[in-house]
Design a protein around this nucleic acid. Sequence first.
DNA 1: TTGTAAACCGCACAAATGTGTTGTTTTATT
DNA 2: AATAAAACAACACATTTGTGCGGTTTACAA
Lengths: 212, 212
Amino acid sequence: MIKVALIEDNTTIRDGLAALINGTTGYSCVGAFSDCESFLSKLETLSVDVVLMDIGLPGMSGIDGIVRAKKIKPELNILMLTVYEDSQTVFKALCAGACGYLVKKTPPSRLLEAIKDAFEGGAPMSSLIARQVITVFQQTQGAATLTPDHELSAREKEVMTSLAEGNNYQEIADRLFISVDTVRHHIRNIYRKLHVHSQSEAVAKAIRKGII
Amino acid sequence: MIKVALIEDNTTIRDGLAALINGTTGYSCVGAFSDCESFLSKLETLSVDVVLMDIGLPGMSGIDGIVRAKKIKPELNILMLTVYEDSQTVFKALCAGACGYLVKKTPPSRLLEAIKDAFEGGAPMSSLIARQVITVFQQTQGAATLTPDHELSAREKEVMTSLAEGNNYQEIADRLFISVDTVRHHIRNIYRKLHVHSQSEAVAKAIRKGII
DNA sequence: TTGTAAACCGCACAAATGTGTTGTTTTATT
DNA sequence: AATAAAACAACACATTTGTGCGGTTTACAA
């Protein structure tokens, strides 16, 4: 039995969804709320597997609702409900912790399928949204493998990592068993390769490019 | 007309796929290779929209093949072909630059659909893989929204962002129309909130937590 | 009204950084 | 054997940073 909670301000849609879920074997609607606040106040004591949350809600937005709900129960499977497939919004929802989304005009059979999918560890979403996610993903995670241009040597990476950990030149030198001047030398080369002129800029670039 | 290239060592499968693609209106197979090396050597002069690449290849692996192909033509849509839905491998392929994948037993109609999807900017993949991607994604990108504890004020974020761009205190002050001493004051508070003692450490933490 | 937080500003000074120049040694690649 | 690249090391010096202290103003909640 998959326990579903609904947060949707439109009474007609909410009742319709609740009826659909309760009317299907294997599904049960354990809560239907018109706003995030009332949902969140009950969440602690609510046994629920999958949450369907409207994105455009009065009061707290669905995005904020996701963040708060995830803080209370990080293992929650939250699916966003949207009217249009607005990339930006859906994208933000995924960042906030949603595991997928549904457009409201989705036919009942596919809706139930998506709930089951989310329950079983999937992430129901259109391939267009998926592409957006992996694009951003690749830019951060996999960027290193794709752009080995301004590649730092192993030693330089060690220096960068140590720098990002908050060590100063003397501490880096001690850790790597080299002199402070050698650290400076490496830093110099790193700056040249990354086209930067300060620690902060170097660290920012190195992390964003996935070098460290 | 979607121009497709194949890299697959099994002759039977390769010929079958080529026949399917060439036999369908709107699709054309512009190249069929048994290994990455021969594909990569032709890629420069090959006009191709979507690449189907087997993951288990003799010689260079499909993963390495993706990385190299993306270096030559970053705009390529590469779909991996796998026998099993092995999460780890598919995941690596996505990191390397693939935009989706297909299991070999996929029925012809869905295969063509996936190619079209990739061509049109989608990322065909199962929702299980999608979930894996967004999980890792959320851990890095969206971490901030989930942990608004050591939250920086809007002004402090501006200072941090400017810092990560490589500006020094004087430049930050000029950009924000405040005095250098106020910049120092903000930096001080940022350090306190993030529990750090240097620019580098602050920038590293801010980026990794998604604050900036 | 009192308190708390954010944003603002200032001075001082030791410590750390960025960059200039000049080397040696080791390890690959040709 | 020769060339190139990486890693190591040193000295000098102006600039920048981190942190100690001290303040004001504004806004908003208790």
